[in-house]
Amino acid sequence: MTQAIKINNLNYQYDDTQTLFDDFNLTIESGQWVALVGHNGSGKSTLAKLVLGLIAANAGEITVFGVPLTVETVHEIRGQIGMVFQNPDNQFVGATVADDVAFGLENQQLPSNDMPSRIDEALNIVGMQAFKDREPHTLSGGQKQRVALASVLALAPKIIILDEATAMLDPDGRDTVMQTLQALKARFGKALTLITITHDMDEATLADRVVVINDGQLILDGTPAAVFSQRDLMHDNGLALPFAGELAAQMQPAPANYLDERELIQWLSRLKK
């Protein structure tokens, strides 16, 4: 398996004195959906900024598809990574939705003949094609985030990082963004590596792998079921389990293994004849 991102012996200090990452290691395989979770201030967004070369590490090596991140390679690497941020209002530049998606393509100096089809396709994937002539500020938060995702998709990145992209959305908006991500994974499969930074554990259950960090340390790393089996450790790190996991812990008797929501409902309905 190819390695999309490999972080080796990373060391990072902020304010010149405060150590956040000390000898941190993490490898993300190509095509994985990884949920990076941790409470506010745990270092998860900083990690994304380090990978994008927006801030520089004090020591260690970051490679993206085998290319070490350096001053010379940073632009090439950023070209492979699309990023969607938390605040839907801070990432628009275009007068219309289509203009906004075009902005990134123009920056890449794509021939203008190719642009309309790329824009249409990207908006289609996120279900926003009907809105292409709308002004971005008239959209709901969830729609804005889907346009932000389309702008990223139009550039055909190999990796997409969403940094708490649903945290500011209402439940409707959150659901449509999560459904869009699932559709993306179904469409691109192994060709797309997806990293979702979140503290919503119900979102994290959708990923292939959950990585928990706190104070720059890797606390847990595994499948959602494996990570969410560690209830005490999650709580110690300021995190809760998904709702079904917290409920299962209150059951008498409790199920022997971690069950996701669907499994827990099945398990319970079998108890009751």
Binding site: F243, E246, L247, Q250, M251, Q252, L268, K272, K273
Partner: peptide
């Protein structure tokens, strides 16, 4: 709430 739900389920299952 989670507590109310857990209590209701435990009661329901306990009646078996």
């Amino acid at each position: 709430t989670l507590t109310q739900l857990a209590t209701a389920i435990n009661t329901e299952v306990g009646h078996e």
